[in-house]
């Protein structure tokens, strides 16, 4: 065994370790580039009151922003968790209603309860595009300065709340 053989053996071993580690990664999971950045500026209307909403409507506390739609089946699964979270008075919860019919969105909420303080109506999907939304539902956590700290794609559940969201929310 000379040095070169050992060198090649090391390459072989590291490729193996690399492939083994690769087995445990989800290739579809993509980190959002917006984490650490401020929530994008917007000017849209409220779903219920039709009032104009902008970034100034956010409160100076931890905020959960949830993107949902009445046509979205997965949103149904996470809804009870959102209602549960909304009971926490230290947290503000804002909804973004993504590409939806106003009447259907209202009907959907009246049946299942409304966890949101305000709901931004994003009928064209512009704000959602700025947020890099690609799968409804999506859930964001913002700090009191509107900086995005966390993003989850897909429905949230108890495990995600306990393990990922609560540590950030209680900071």
């Amino acid at each position: 065994m000379n040095k070169i053989t050992i060198f090649y053996a090391l390459i072989f071993i590291s490729v193996t370790i690399f492939l083994y580690k690769g087995l445990h990664y989800d290739p579809k999971k993509i980190e959002s580039p917006l984490i650490g950045k401020t929530f994008p500026e917007f000017k849209l209307t409220d779903l219920y009151t039709k009032d104009t909403l902008t970034n100034s409507n956010f409160l100076e506390k931890k905020t959960i922003v949830n993107v949902w739609a009445s046509w979205c089946l997965e949103c149904e699964r996470e809804h009870s968790y959102l209602i549960q979270l909304s009971k926490n008075k230290d947290i503000d919860m804002i909804g973004i209603n993504y590409k939806d019919e106003t009447s259907e969105a209202m009907g959907w909420l009246s049946m299942r309860g409304n966890p949101y303080r305000i709901i931004i109506k994003d009928s064209i999907g512009d704000l959602s595009l700025d947020l890099g939304v690609y799968g409804v539902p999506e859930t964001y956590i913002l700090d009191k300065n509107q900086v995005i700290q966390y993003k989850h794609i897909g429905p949230i559940n108890n495990q995600i709340i306990q393990e990922e969201m609560l540590p950030i929310l209680s900071e």
Binding site: P33, D130, G132
Partner: peptide
């Protein structure tokens, strides 16, 4: 687009 959706 890549600012919003990453270089992916």
């Amino acid at each position: 687009l890549s600012e919003r959706y990453s270089s992916y």
